[in-house]
Each structure stands twice: as structure tokens, then as C-alpha cells.
Amino acid sequence: MAQSEYMYKKQPVALTLLCVVAGALISALNINSFVNAGGLFPSGFNGLTILIQRIFSTFFNLEVPFTAINILLNVVPAIIAYKIIGKKFTLFSCLMIGLSSVFVDVLPLSSITYDPLLIGVFGGIFNGLAISIALKGNASSGGTDFIAMSVSVKTNLSTWNYVFAFNVCVLIIAGYLFGWDKALYSIIFQFCSTQVINLLHQKYKQMTLFVITDIPDQLCEELLIYTHHGITRFDGEGAYSRRKHTLLYTVVGRGEAKQIIRKIKEIDPNAFVNVAKTEYVEGRFHQAPIE
């Protein structure tokens, strides 16, 4: 398989649209079924939008539409994403913002449970699932997702735990205004959401591959065509067999690892592959573009 076929194969627009619509629908149903029933505050700008709605409703006796606030809040992050991440990603993300906002306003409210702990856990799971589906389609739910993705593109680091910390700060305001019980249950909601995203969204995580082979020239040639990642060779000797072997060392994206390992085994069925989790990479590391 040529490099362009693997690294730059574009995702079908139909799949992206399906992910955007599904993510928006799940997000809206989650807000109308779990969030509003428990009086919680979800993560990101959805939570900030709900906080602003409740401030207007409680202190000014004004009912402000979810759509108007959410779209207004996302203007600046969308501009940032447009410049750093890309046009298609931003446009599809804006489509999800618009769809989810409209769905929240038009879909009926329906409470599945009023138990705050169940709402916090399962609401957080569904929120994380909605965001992960959008990210799978190379889109996002906007707001802090725009910011997190922009930072990840620049640094190749996962930033979702930092988003969680930011959301906790927002909840301090919500707790002060509307009661600490709702804020504390919202922390459970947001923690569950963050963990689901960390579990399902693997794009900005890396794995280290150690490959022992007897055909290093052929394997290196094929892998360098197959991916953009550099490879370092070490010559060694088996302690038991006393035979000469070559150790290949490379770092790849976690989402790429299984496909690359399959390619290695196609080229050299006798290759020994050790996969290790990579916490941090400093230096030049190729990240396949979103668009």
C-alpha cells in the first residue's frame, strides 16, 4: 500500500455527516433527559450555556434560548480552530453545534431517572460518547473541544484532563450560585465524560514499537513508504542463538499501531514486535492531518 493510501486516505463526507448528526442527537437527548432532570452542568460550552440560561432565568426572570447562547459562545473558538486545525473540521463542528443546539430546543424533555448519582454517571458516559463520535468523524462539539484539539495539533499531547480542570473551575461558580450538591454531582458527570473520551479518542496518543527482524532493509523500506514515521536501527546478537539480528525502533500514533503491526507481519512473519505505551514525545513526530 502506498503512503498516500494509508496516511492521507480521506474520510468519506457521508461518514462525517453521520457522526456529526449522531453526536448532536445523543448530546441533545443527554441534556434533555439527564442534565436538566438532575439540574447538572455538563462539560464544555454546553455547560457554560446552561449556566448562563439558569442565571438569566433565576436572577433576571428571562428565558434565553439554548441555541442563541451556545452559538454566540462558540464564535471565537471556531475562529481559532479554523486557523489552526482547518476549514472542514471547523465547518463540520459548527454544523454539530448548530444541530445539537436546535435539538435541545425542539426535542421534548424526558426524565429517565431523578437519582443524581445515576444521572452524573450515565449522563457523563453519554456526553463523552457524543463527543467521541464527533471526534471520530473529524468534528467536535465546539467550545473547549475546539481549544483542546487546537492545542493537541500544536503539541501532539492529549489535553482532555486539562479541559476537565477548566470545567471544575466553572463548576465552582455554578456551585456558589445554585448549590454545591449540583456542582459536586456535575464533577462526577464531567469526570465520567472525560474518561470516556480518553478511552475512545486515541488520535493524539503514541505507542513505541520495538521490532526484531532478520530482513531490516526490506522492512525499513516498506515501512518508510507505508508511514511518515522515522525508524532507528540497532544491530545486535541473540543471547541464546548467537545469531545476528536487527532491532528497529519507532514511535507511531496509537490509532496506527495495529495497522502497522499487521504490515510488519505481512513483510516478515517471523518478526518479534514489542509494543510499549509512550507517555510523551519531544522532537519531530509526524501527526497525520485531520483533513
Rank of each mutant, 00 (worst) to 15 (best):
Phe59Gln: 08
Glu266Cys: 08
Leu99Ala: 10
Val20Gly: 01
Val106Arg: 03
Leu184Lys: 04
Glu256Ala: 04
Leu72Trp: 04
Lys265Arg: 13
Asn127Phe: 03
Leu62Trp: 09
Phe92Pro: 00
Gly98Glu: 04
Met1Gln: 11
Leu51Gln: 06
Ile231Thr: 04
Ile231Lys: 02
Phe126Trp: 10
Ala2Tyr: 09
Met149Asp: 01
Leu117Pro: 10
Leu157Thr: 06
Thr246Lys: 05
Thr58Glu: 13
Ile50Thr: 11
Ser186His: 07
Glu222Gln: 14
Asp268Arg: 08
Leu209Asn: 01
Val64Asp: 03
Lys182Ile: 12
Gln259Ile: 10
Gly86Cys: 05
Thr232Trp: 04
Glu5His: 12
Glu279Met: 10
Thr67Cys: 03
Tyr114Val: 07
Val20Thr: 08
Leu91Gly: 07
Asp181Gly: 05
Asp115Ser: 07
Thr250Ile: 07
Gly230Ile: 02
Leu18Gly: 12
Phe34Asn: 01
Ile85Leu: 10
Ser93Leu: 05
Phe210Glu: 00
Gly47Gln: 06
Tyr114Gly: 11
Glu5Thr: 13
Gly255Pro: 01
Phe89Trp: 03
Ser140Pro: 06
Leu29Ser: 06
Tyr249Phe: 15
Tyr249Asp: 09
Glu237Met: 11
Gly47Asn: 09
Ile119Arg: 00
Ser158Gly: 07
Lys277Ala: 15
Phe146Pro: 00
Pro12Asn: 11
Met7Asn: 13
Ile71Val: 15
Ala2Val: 09
Val35Trp: 00
Ala37Ser: 15
Leu200Thr: 05
Ile131Cys: 04
Gly253Met: 13
Ser4Leu: 13
Asn161Arg: 14
Ser57Glu: 15
Asn61Gly: 03
Thr90Val: 07
Val281Tyr: 09
Ile225Asn: 14
Ile85Lys: 02
Glu63Ser: 10
Leu184Asn: 09
Met207Gln: 12
Phe89Asn: 01
